Amino acid sequence: MGAFVSNMLALQQPPGLIAIHLNLPLAVPDPLPTQGANRDEREAIAAMTRHATDDGGYSHMHATRPQTLGYPLSDSPVGLAAWIYEKFQAWTDNSGTPESALARDDMLDDITLYWLTNTAASSARLYRECAKNGYTPNQGVVNFPVGISIFPREVYRAPRSWVDRVYPNLIHWNQLNRGGHFAAFEEPALFTQELRDCFRGVRGA
């Protein structure tokens, strides 16, 4: 959602916005290439296919029956913890268990925030609202200063060839050697450095 909102801001270019940073660039060809793809493109296509066929059930459930899911998650702290913990396992840069990427207390803090505020259902319903309003990863060319950081265990890693077509005004590009989908949570020092490197050249603009 952060990537989606930032991307929309860059498309709208409101006064005062001078650049954005993404670590999940919305650069997905439609249709996906079936022939002539290079290695990076093939890896991205394979990751997106795995996400759609093996890892995307949660998203379809959120987008189609968020309340059905929301009631049991709001009734069972164990169920809520399992639902979120599985994503920490699947999407962090870990060695088999999410505890190798995130401290257990930090994960529990995150899960507890959902529990105490009773926001499991509303966080799922966001997917439904996006689906109703035509959310798509293909929002068009973003002719605006954009910095991009690619973390190795992201859900999928957009190859540079796709990124250049969507973000022609690229001010920062870096492929890091560790970190996953929750990059700012997993690797706060690395993520902070990426932001500094990205915006250093535009701070005085």
Rank of each mutant, 00 (worst) to 15 (best):
H181Q: 13
F185Y: 10
P159K: 04
V166E: 07
A183N: 05
P168G: 14
R157K: 14
P159L: 02
F182L: 15
A184I: 05
V166Y: 05
G179R: 06
L195A: 00
V155D: 09
R165I: 14
E187Q: 13
I148S: 02
D197L: 01
I171E: 14
A184W: 04
R196T: 00
F182A: 10
E187K: 09
P145I: 10
N169Y: 15
E194F: 00
A158D: 00
V155T: 02
L176I: 02
S149C: 10
R200E: 13
T192L: 09
W173P: 15
V155S: 08
A184C: 08
V163H: 08
E187G: 09
S161N: 12
L170Q: 12
R160S: 04
T192D: 04
R153E: 00
L195I: 01
L176A: 13
I171N: 14
Y167E: 09
P188D: 15
Q193D: 07
G147C: 05
E154V: 15
E186I: 00
N174E: 12
V166F: 05
R203W: 08
S149Q: 09
E154Y: 11
Y167K: 11
Q175C: 03
R203E: 05
T192E: 05
H172C: 04
R203S: 03
W162C: 04
V146A: 11
W162K: 11
N174P: 09
D164V: 03
E187H: 04
A184Y: 13
L195D: 01
G147E: 10
V163R: 06
N177E: 15
E186H: 02
R157L: 14
R160L: 08
A184H: 10
A189D: 12
L176Q: 03
F182R: 04
